[in-house]
Amino acid sequence: MGLFILKRLGLMLLTMLCLTFIVFWLTNLDAKLETLAKTQGSARMTDTEVQQWIANNGYDGSMIGRYGQWLGIVPGWTKEVRGEERGRCLEQGMTFADAPTYCGILQGDFGYSTVLRDDVSTIIKTRLTLTGKLMFWVMIVMVPMALIVGVLAGMREGSRTDRSLSVFSIVTTATPEYVSGVLFIFAVSAFGIKWLKGSAASAMDGLTFANFTLPVLTMALYGMGYIARMTRASMTEVMTAQYIRTARLKGVSFGNIVMKHALRNALIAPFTVIMLQFPWLLTGVVIVETLFNYKGFGWTLVQGASNNDIELLLSCSIVAVLVVLVTQLISDIGYVFLNPRIRVS
C-alpha cells in the first residue's frame, strides 16, 4: 500500500509538472506577453516600447529558464534598469545583495498578481476559503440528495417512483449552471420572492439562507443528476444480482435487503463518481461565481485569465490540478476499502 501511494504521488508530481508547464507555455507566448505589456503599461505603446517593457520585467530569456525560475530551481532574473536594481526576487527598494537567489514555488513564493496587485498566495488563500464555503454547502446538498434519489429509483426498477425520479435526474443533467442560474434568478424576480436573492455578493461577508441558496442550488442540481443516475444504474444492477435473490429467498425483508445487502455494493461505483466530480465542479464554480457575483476562486481565475496574469493563473492551475489529483487518489483508495474483492497484498 505504501509503495502504491508513493507511486501515485510520483505520478501526480509528473502530471503537475506537465500541466503547469503547459499553462506556463500558453501564458508566455509572445503574443500573450505583448497583450500583457499593453494592459500593464499602456495600450498605446509602440512595438519597441512593448519589447522594452517585456525585457525590463524579466519576460525575455528562454521559456524553460523562466519556468525554472518560477519553480525555484533556477536563480531569479536580475537586471539593472535606469540605475534601479530589479529582479524576480527583489521586493520594492531591495538591492541585489539582500535578495535571495531563488524565489519560486519551492521556496514558497507564488509570485505577484499583476492584475489584483497583491501576493498570489494571499489572493489564493482568501478566494479559496470563499469557494470552499460554497463547495462545502454544495456537497452537503448534492451528495445526500443524489444518493437518496438514486437508491430510491434503483430499488425497484421500472416502478413509477423509478420513472419519475429518473426523468428528474435527466432533466437536471440537461440543465447546465448558466441555464438553471438564469432560470432561478428569473423565477425569483418574476414571482417577487423576497426571501431569496439573485446575487451572492453579500455572502462574501456573511452567509445567509437568502444570499446563498440560489448559487448552491444551481451548482448542486447539475451535479446531482449525474451522480443520481450512476447510483441508480449501480443499484439496479445490484438488485438483480444473484446474491440479492439469495437474500430474498433466505427470507430477508425488503428493507433489510436494501440496507444490509444492496447498499454497500451499490455505493462503490457512485463513490468513485462523486470523487471524480470535483474537478468538473470547477467549471460550475466559475460559472456560478460569475453569475451570482461571488468573488471566490472561480472569479479569480476569470480575472487572471482575461488579463493574462501569469503567476496568478499558474497558482490557480496548481490548485485546480491538485484538487483533481488528490480526489482521484482518494477515489482509488476509497474504492479499495469499499470493495473487499480488491485488497492490496
Binding site: 444473484q242 439469495t246 430474498r248 429467498l249 433466505k250 425483508s253 473487499p340
Partner: peptide, 22 residues
C-alpha cells in the same frame, strides 16, 4: 418470507454470484 430460507432453501448454479461479495 417466513417459509423461504427456513422451510424451503435453494442452492444455485453460480456459487460466487449467490454470495454477497461485500
Amino acid at each position: 418470507s417466513k417459509i423461504r430460507g427456513s422451510e424451503i432453501a435453494m442452492i444455485y448454479q453460480e456459487p460466487m454470484a449467490s454470495l454477497n461479495p461485500a
